[in-house]
Structures are given as structure tokens and as C-alpha cells.
Amino acid sequence: MNDHQVHIDEHRDDEGAKTGMWIFIFTELLLFGGLFIAYSVYRYLNPLAFHLAAEELDTTLGTINTVILLVSSMTIAMSISAIQYKNKKLTLILMGITLLLALAFMVNKYFEWSGKISHGIYPGSMTLQEASRGELLFFGLYYAMTGLHALHIVIGMAFIGYVMHLVVKNEVQHDNFAILENSGLYWHLVDLIWIFLFPLFYLIT
């Protein structure tokens, strides 16, 4: 605490920024937490229907997406080490790989969703109205939870893209990279949620 003379506008506190980011991550976790509660209750009430409905989902696609997210999580974590080693080029490459992998995830998701929709499985469709109520709930939750997760992927991509821009402009450097760390934390959160979504939706056969 030696910067009391500094004007408030110039106040900089990297540790505080990180604390704030973590607390924000908690709110995100609980946002999904609400959906996980709904999921667990409905799965408990409709075990068989969830079982049957889950067979509609493509485990291979799900696994590929899991691998993509795990690798992208590693690359963004590595980029923080890279900036600490003052290796700007490697930082940018690693962040770029993260963005590309995120894009691949979204493309995959697009094919998965459009596949479902072409089979008539979407909220309010005729097929689903004839299905059992458990299946209806399963697909409702499936679209809501993976959809909300995909939204977070997009936000994370924008965040990482913005930080990349800062790295290019040398505003993020080896002694000033709190925002890169925070974008990394956000990206790991997205990964963390997927780690639970994957077995809960794709692996209950």
C-alpha cells in the first residue's frame, strides 16, 4: 500500500481485478447451477425417458467437442506462461489457436443442432409433442443448457479477441497481464461447465 498519492482514476489493482473475476465466475457457476438443479430433479423423476432421449445424441460429436475445449483450455493457460516469459509472438499464437478451437466447437455445435432440428427435434415441434414428457424435458434442458453454454463460448471468444488486440498493442505485457489472466479464467469456466454437461447429456446410455 504505497500508492496513496495516486489519483483514483489511475488506481490499478491486479489482485483486486482477479478477485472480482473469480466472484463473477461464481455467479456464472450458480447461473448454470439453477439449470443443473432442474436437470437433476427431472432426471430423477423421469429416469427412463432421459435414458431413451440421450440415445438420440451423438456421443462422438460430444467427445470431439470435449477434446476441443480441453485443448483450447490448455492453450489459453499456456499463453499466460508465454507472456510471463515475454514471448509476445507465442502468446498471440496460443490465443489464436484457442479462438480457432472455439470456432471449431461452434461449427460442430451448429451441425449437431441442425441435425437435431432436421429430425424434427426442437422445442415446440410435432415430433416432440408426440414424445413422452420426460423426453420433452430432456430436449428442453438440452437446448437451454447447451445453448446458454454456446452463448458463453461466443462471449469468451469476444473477450479473448479483445485481449489479443491489447497484446498486439503492447498494452498487455509481462508485468501487466491481469486482463489476460481473467480472460483465461473465463475460458476455463466455459470448459468447466462443459466437463459436467458432457456426461450428463451424452453419456447416460
Binding site: 450458480l30 447451477g33 439453477g34
Partner: peptide
């Protein structure tokens, strides 16, 4: 910790 639940 509580607001996100009502949010969702």
C-alpha cells in the same frame, strides 16, 4: 450467490 439462480 443467489441472484444468478433467479436470473436463470
Amino acid at each position: 450467490l443467489a441472484t444468478p439462480i433467479v436470473g436463470v
